[in-house]
Design a protein around this nucleic acid. Structure first.
Length: 482
RNA sequence: CGGGGUAUGGCACAGUUGGUAGUGCGCUUCGUUCGGGACGAAGAGGUCGCCAGUUCGAGUCUGGCUACCCCGACCA
């Protein structure tokens, strides 16, 4: 009898994560492959997730006095060439327009892989004095990076994100903002998407092309691979110098502004899908769920029951719950149960003649699949519980799969087996980092920054590099990356 | 960029030594059902990825092209 709970067609997460991942995205109608290589269509149900992220994050960004604006999709190639590391980092992934309006273009136009260069060219024109700083602008837009190997949401040739770009008179102000952005992202992941992760600093070789320092939020996926959830960069004065952008300081001397940039993309939706779902389909954390409660009137119920169901829907709407009533004809109750389970709606309410008579509803929580009779007043509490459970579950998974290792043998053994985060001393020499990656597939994810308030740098410890045995002062986090 | 695979109704696929284009799911209509993916009946839907060649005749054989997917190296 347990068989009746198996999805007829959906691939099993427990069999193969990556097959399940693609299958569930298509079947839950979050997205579809576009007829363009490496590109995807984000369908309404999937786009609602992105809108949910925007609704949560945009006010936080504005509260920090960052304004939204829009810059061109096309960037003259010569702008990108100005910052050496920057162009070297992005050149392999650039899509370039060379032909338009029926003729060869005199100036090649890069479809933006990120907007630092076009934005700073404008910042330069808009600022003359230190009094014109800080300048803080964010844009919600699309980005093109021609990836060789693509994957729905996690790595597509075009993706959506927000990119914030600020410039200050002092490095201190800029750095404090870099950390603010990182904290905002962390909060979004934990509170909205119910994803636990580790905030940290990237190593020299893993940092953003052109940055002085890159901060990141790394999450662990069910297969033990790590997902970089966002980045926040301290750009120092690199771009200002490359663009010859100066303002006059108090003494009339030229000052190169201190800059930062920070971004959060639709990749986050990939993490959300992968971390929370199960063999039955997606599980949407209630805070981000486009539909928090799906109400299913049992087909064949009396007209009185239908009325009762609609009254329950209205009652839920009134208290701010995102609720939908599935009264579509021609689908059986079981069919609808399965349909909404695949889509990961946190709570299903079944309403038939019995419920209408008793004046209650039958509720099923998507995470535990437990069925119980409740009154409408209990739904908000149930949603909160599901949200907390999902975060707790992911946190526990992450901590259970974070290994502190002392020897390279142990390191290799873990990578050959269950993988996960590996915390190990590293001498901070790039050649060790490269060899570790070549030998184990684990790349350096970050130097974790779960710091006591006020501390900017993790305190030093005494250790020896897990690879070469030379002295090391910090434990870095390693994992195979997505 | 290397390796592999695929291309036939909306989707998943079959199609034998070359001889009238098939199956399942889905879709439409009607009826019976309806508390974990209901059932029956009747329907609609295809220039077989593109271009050339061989042949009386090509989904099938040959050559070329294109596109997409999967696996590795690079990345949010």
């Amino acid at each position: 009898m347990q068989k009746q709970f198996e999805k007829k067609e959906l691939k099993k997460k427990s069999d193969n994560l990556s097959d399940w991942y693609t299958d569930v995205i298509l079947k839950a109608q979050l997205a579809d492959y576009a007829p363009i290589k490496g590109c995807m269509v984000i369908r309404p149900y999937g786009f609602a997730l992105w809108e949910g992220i925007q609704h949560y994050m945009d006010p936080l960004i504005k509260a920090h006095k960052v304004e939204n604006a829009y810059f061109p999709l096309f960037i003259p190639e010569k702008f990108l060439n100005l910052e050496k590391e920057h162009v070297e980092g992005f050149a392999p992934h650039m899509a370039v327009v060379t032909f338009a309006g029926g003729e060869e273009l005199k100036e090649r136009l890069v479809v933006r892989p990120t907007s630092e260069t076009i934005m700073y060219e404008m910042y330069k024109r808009w600022t003359q004095s230190y009094r014109d700083l800080p300048i803080r602008i964010n844009q919600w837009n699309n980005i093109v990076r021609w990836e060789k190997r693509t994957y729905l949401f996690l790595r597509t040739s075009e993706f959506l994100w927000q990119e914030g770009h600020c410039a200050h008179n002092t490095h201190k102000e800029s750095v404090s903002e870099v950390r603010w952005a990182l904290d905002m992202y962390k909060e979004t992941y934990q509170n909205l998407l119910a994803l636990y992760g580790v905030a940290g600093v990237k190593s020299e070789s893993e940092k953003f092309a052109g940055a002085k320092k890159t901060y990141t939020f790394e999450m662990l996926m069910p297969d033990g691979k790590a997902l970089q959830g966002c980045t926040s960069h301290d750009l120092g004065q690199n771009f200002a110098k490359a663009f010859h952008w100066t303002v006059q300081d108090e003494k009339g001397q030229p000052l190169y502004p201190w800059q930062n940039s920070w971004g959060f993309s639709t990749r986050s939706i990939g993490g959300l899908i992968m971390a929370h779902g199960d063999d039955q389909g997606l599980i949407m954390p209630p805070n981000i769920a486009p539909i928090q409660v799906i109400l299913i009137p049992i087909p064949g119920s009396s007209p009185k029951t239908i009325k009762y169901a609609i009254a329950q829907r209205e009652a839920l709407k009134k208290i701010g719950i995102r609720v939908k009533c599935d009264d579509k004809d021609g689908e059986s109750a079981g069919f609808k149960f399965n349909k909404w389970e695949v889509r990961g709606v946190p709570i299903r309410l079944e309403i038939g003649d019995k419920e209408a008579e008793e004046g209650i509803v039958t509720a099923v929580a998507r995470d535990t699949m437990q069925k119980k009779k409740v009154s409408i007043d209990e739904i908000s509490g149930m949603l909160e519980t599901i949200q907390q459970n999902l975060l707790e579950t992911h946190k526990k998974f992450t901590l259970d799969h974070t290994h502190t290792v002392e020897s390279y043998d142990h390191f290799k053994k873990i990578m050959a087996g269950e993988r996960g985060f590996i915390s190990a001393f590293w001498c901070e020499d790039a050649s060790c980092e490269t060899k570790i990656k070549a030998e184990t597939k684990a790349s350096n994810r970050c130097l974790p920054l779960d710091l006591p308030a006020g501390r900017q740098v993790p305190k030093e410890e005494k250790g020896t590099c897990v690879h070469c045995g030379k002295p090391a002062t910090h434990r870095w986090l390693f994992a195979q990356a997505y």
